[in-house]
Amino acid sequence: MTQDASTPPNTPPPEVDAWGGQSRISALAEVLAPVLLAACGLVTVLTTIGILLVLAVQSVEFFLKAGIGVGEFLFGTVLKPEASPPKFGILPLIWGTFLIALGSSLIALPIGLMSAIYLSEYAPRVVRAVLKPTLELLAGVPTIVYGYLALLLITPLLKTVLEPLGFRVEQFNALSACIVVGVMIVPLVSSLSEDVLSAVPQGLREAAYGLGATKFEVSTRIVLPAGLSGVVASFILAISRAVGETMAVVLAAGMMPQITLNPLTSVETMTTYIVQVIGGEASYGTPKYLSLFAVGLALFGITLTLNILSSLVLRRYREVYQ
């Protein structure tokens, strides 16, 4: 791969050209291949530029047409695109997104971390060989299935449990969205954390056992702190996934933009709003239609920040072992 490896020390004599009938074609391939491959690599860069460009250009158009400022957009508490004059305060959307992300993390982070600890510290080889692929398989279930699960199973269950206690459970509610999104991101947390915990060198564990520590103490006081940066990074990534999740939330939490602490009522997240606008009657170029790009930009900003934060944590605080 290095430069001196690609040109052998004894440069072949020029009669190589006369040697094979294929030499011209292979010489052409030699020149063309890197160009074509570089073009493929360029596509990934262009995708990012495309996303930024689309979101920025259309958002500017939205702010001009709707005639509102960024502050009013981000911190306005009323979202009524149909009213006249329309109101585009997306704070209810940000609140809904935060509520779902918080609720699902409360479920997913402990369960994910505990299963990572089990898989890396406690599980016998055979059990691990079965459980790990099963968890990975679970990560492949499409999100619409989880949304349907909320409608079919979780919400009726919540109704039968909570309504006799005097709570009113709406057909679409934030709690069932939190539960399904939480279950959905468990495999992400457990598989990323498990990778880090397994990479903690065996010598650390053995040293702790040698000092008389129990398995519990080794797991929680030696292995977990040693792999903490990876665990935290996986937590942040999982939250970012919950923020960007669409279909499960659309089907479970409904489309009611409101700022509420009651998880049994319907809320609307940023992703849901985008789906609602595109599914509605808004025609191309109207402020309502363009608002989806501005909301998309805010969503992209949040998830990008979380992703960068996650990789920073991983890089900055990683314990390096030889």
């Binding site: 996303i51 998309g296 992703n307």
Partner: peptide, 26 residues
Amino acid sequence: IQTNIANLAGVPSIVYGILGLALFVR
């Protein structure tokens, strides 16, 4: 480029939808 790809992997799918809507559909 590497960082860029890692970040692209974390972009929510609906943002790709927005990209496709503006770039390919319109």
